[in-house]
Computed example of a mutant assay.
Amino acid sequence: MLHDFLLNVDNVVADLSQDRPRLGRSSTAERVADILRDRISEGFFQPGQRLSEESISEGLGVSRNTLREAFRLLGHERLLDHRLNKGVFVRLPSAEDVADLYRVRRVLEGAALRRAPSEEALALIKEAVLDAERAAEQDDWQGVGTANIRFHQALVSLNGSPRIDEAMRQLLAELRLVFHVMENPRAFHEPFVDRNRALVGLMESGQPEKAAAYLDDYLDQAERLLIHAYEPNR
Rank of each mutant, 00 (worst) to 15 (best):
S94E: 07
A132G: 10
E204F: 00
R78T: 07
D10Q: 14
P117M: 02
N8Q: 07
N196G: 11
S157A: 14
R150S: 09
E96C: 03
E42Q: 11
A187L: 12
A111Y: 05
Q207H: 11
R50E: 01
V98I: 08
M168E: 15
E77P: 11
L16D: 09
R150T: 02
E120M: 01
L226A: 03
E174W: 00
K86E: 15
D10L: 08
L122Q: 02
P93C: 09
P185W: 06
V107T: 11
L130Q: 08
H3S: 14
S94H: 05
A99N: 13
R106W: 02
G201T: 08
D10P: 05
S57W: 00
P117V: 03
R134K: 11
P208S: 08
S17V: 07
V90E: 01
A99S: 15
L108Y: 07
V178S: 12
R39M: 03
L158C: 06
F45G: 08
Q138G: 06
V193M: 07
H3F: 10
L124Y: 00
L130R: 11
D15V: 12
D15Q: 14
M203R: 12
L36K: 01
V104S: 10
G145S: 12
L158G: 02
R195Q: 15
L6H: 13
T146L: 09
S205C: 10
N65W: 04
A112H: 01
E69R: 10
M203W: 07
D100I: 05
P208E: 06
I164A: 12
L215W: 04
F44Y: 15
R50P: 00
Q221A: 12
E133V: 00
A222E: 15
Q138M: 08
P191V: 08
E109N: 01
A211M: 04
V129Y: 02
L7P: 13
V200Q: 09
R25T: 10
A167W: 02
I164M: 11
R50F: 01
F45V: 06
E137S: 06
L124K: 10
E166K: 14
L92S: 13
L130M: 06
A147R: 03
A95Y: 05
D217E: 13
V104Q: 12
P47D: 09
N148R: 13
I56W: 09
L171C: 06
R37L: 04
L199R: 08
V178H: 10
N233D: 07
R37A: 02
V98A: 03
R78L: 12
S94K: 09
L215K: 02
V178T: 15
L155F: 03
L202I: 13
P117I: 03
D15N: 13
R106S: 05
E77T: 03
A212Y: 07
L175K: 14
E174Q: 15
L36D: 05
R64K: 14
L73G: 02
